[in-house]
């Protein structure tokens, strides 16, 4: 074997000096990371602590211990199966509404995003701004007149009424996400399908949609998640005679119109799926979508 063969030369040369690990800046960075992580994780830890430790060590003491003194399932079982626990109907309503919001976001969001990607830039910008403004209008301001309307229409408290209002929050986000996906597709793809004789419907659903499935899934799940966590519309529109969504029951439990222990159990149940979704969806949570296409 020849000494100095290309394989041997390919190894990078040893650095002239090794970067020190424990510099002042690195230690500062490390401390910042640890402090910020504790700030973010501490409340989540407390949620689980309160859920799995007897309430006399958590809710009903002035200086609650910071570590689990004793573990118990009692809080959860009492909340989920206890007498008069609204858990099952509440969970059912939450799921109904969340899936409705998710599917509606796709049903209305796909055509809207496609249309926006084909409109002139000025009109498209105007319409995205309108959708964006909808996201800023105070929920409580529009929830009250809407609830008056729904009472008249006899839809008060139904999954349709809650879902239709929550869609106001989900639709803009879904449209921005899908718009990004449509804009990423080459324009020729569509022209080709049209030349091959496909109608507009078949072009969109036959050749464009299959290419943006990940964005569709992300839009559906984000909408689902927004609905699952939403509580202002759900609170104003809930009918005390039937049932309320999980967040509303949590709200009622902690504002003196329910049992706090129920709220504890519901909080854990409501939190787990969304934490998982957040981690899974991490790479779809894009700044451009949240700030409606601000460019640098």
């Amino acid at each position: 074997m020849i000494v100095g063969s290309p394989a041997a030369d390919a190894r990078p040369p040893a650095p002239l000096y090794k970067r020190p690990v424990f510099t002042f800046a690195n230690i500062g960075l490390g401390v910042a990371i640890v402090v910020i992580s504790i700030f973010f994780l501490f409340p989540i830890y407390i949620i689980f602590l309160i859920a799995f430790v007897p309430t006399k060590y958590t809710l009903f003491t002035a200086l609650p211990p910071l570590y689990p003194v004793k573990l118990t399932w009692d809080n959860l079982t009492a909340g989920l199966y206890g007498a008069n626990s609204p858990f099952l109907p509440s969970m059912y309503l939450s799921l109904e509404v969340a899936f409705f919001v998710g599917f509606l976001a796709l049903a209305v969001g796909i055509p809207t995003a496609y249309g926006l990607s084909r409109l002139g830039p000025r009109l498209a910008y105007g319409i995205t701004t309108v959708l964006f403004i909808v996201n800023m209008v105070p929920s409580i301001t529009i929830a009250i007149p809407i609830s008056v309307q729904f009472i008249k229409a006899g839809l008060y408290g139904s999954w349709i009424s809650i879902g239709l209002t929550q869609e106001l929050l989900a639709l803009p986000v879904a449209v921005f996400l899908l718009l990004g996906a449509f804009q990423g597709l080459p324009r020729d793809l569509e022209n080709q399908a049209r030349v091959d004789g496909a109608g507009l419907g078949r072009t969109i659903y036959g050749s464009l949609i299959p290419l943006i499935v990940p964005a569709l899934v992300a839009a559906f799940l984000l909408s689902w998640m927004l609905s699952w966590d939403e509580s202002t519309f759900a609170l104003i529109l809930y009918n005390p005679a039937t049932s309320a969504t999980l967040p509303v029951n949590i709200f009622l439990a902690f504002t003196g119109r329910g049992i706090p222990a129920n709220g504890v159990a519901f909080s854990v149940i409501a939190t787990i799926p969304v934490i998982l979704l957040t981690v899974v969806l991490q790479r779809y949570l894009k700044g451009e979508d949240l700030a409606v296409g601000v460019r640098g």
Binding site: P43, T278, V279
Partner: peptide
């Protein structure tokens, strides 16, 4: 870690902070 709070419902966040800073004094 920095995006986890997005996954916590607002009502749940309100509740856990009401235990950290309770109206009755004390707390976490």
């Amino acid at each position: 870690v920095a995006i986890l709070p997005i996954g916590i419902a607002t009502v749940v966040a309100g509740y856990v902070f009401s235990q950290i800073f309770p109206a009755t004094g004390g707390g976490y």
